[in-house]
Design a binder for these strands. Structure first.
Lengths: 149, 149
DNA sequence: AGAGCTTATGCATATTTATGCAACTTTTTG
DNA sequence: CAAAAAGTTGCATAAATATGCATAAGCTCT
């Protein structure tokens, strides 16, 4: 699915330094998405991903301010990653978007979530129990990433 | 002269939408700088100019995010303490500095760090696992306090 | 001024990225 | 349910960008 792939692209480029579309292609292949460079060229365009020079060549990066078209539609596009450790869940967002996403999470009123704390581009979500962590992550991905029912 | 040309490049790309290096080459020619695309490729790299997708193709733009690398050396003096409990790391900073330090930590892109949340003078850093806490603290001290390049 | 060194540039080309087109899939409409 | 419309993708290729190498332009020191 396209949206899942694009979500994974966002994860990948914010997690590690991806220097070319072919490098990205190989990373995606590891994760089970096999597509061609042509598709990635289109994906990056749609995601508004910028290519910026760095010390050792280039690197792709999510573009914070410029393209309002990215920020506009849904919370989905503002989310970069959803990860967790043993005690809490961390949602990484585009710069300045954490509070908006946090509000949305709050309105979902999931009893497994006892609270959220928003920074600038990071949102902490505290589950009612560490045992609920996995369940809450599923819930978040269903409700935030895929798009609302 | 190179520096004058690069200065003019900065002027040009912020004044109008330049979509390719050849387009830039023609604009520079109008201003009396005649160089080849190869030189411009190098210039843009040195200037840290990003290429970002827009509605009609692409456009070059001065990179907004470079600030973090500039800030890094200064961050050292803003950090007061780095401590941790069982689930997260807390960095105390000078008043109002937590977000700046947080940005720098973000740009370090350590996979053991899944997110940061900045208050005014307190920065939370969430490790990927509580087992990584010690390692992350070492990392932070190495990269922020000592000030490695 | 000239030898030796560093930097800048062009040329040719390799590498990377974008895109027209056709095949295929999914969604919408009648 | 069929037909049409819209969307997605791969393929081949065009377009754009980066780079190795050689040369030229500065610079420094004697």
């Amino acid at each position: 699915m396209k949206s899942q792939r694009q979500f994974t692209i966002k994860e990948l480029i914010s997690a590690k330094a991806i220097g070319s579309q072919d490098e990205l292609r190989l990373e995606l292949k590891k994760k089970g998405f096999k597509v061609t460079q042509a598709t990635l060229s289109r994906d990056l365009q749609e995601l508004g991903v910028a290519r910026l020079p760095s010390d050792d060549g280039f690197r792709y990066a999510l573009q914070p301010g410029t393209s309002a078209s990215i920020l506009r539609p849904a919370v989905t596009t503002e989310i970069i990653t959803i990860t967790a450790n043993e005690s809490m869940i961390v949602v990484r967002t585009l710069p300045g978007c954490a509070n908006v996403v946090g509000e949305v999470v709050d309105t979902l009123r999931n009893p497994d979530i006892i609270g959220t704390v928003a920074g600038d581009n990071t949102l902490l979500i505290i589950p009612s129990s560490v045992k609920k962590t996995k369940k809450v992550i599923e819930f978040l991905k269903d409700n935030l990433v895929k798009g609302k029912p």
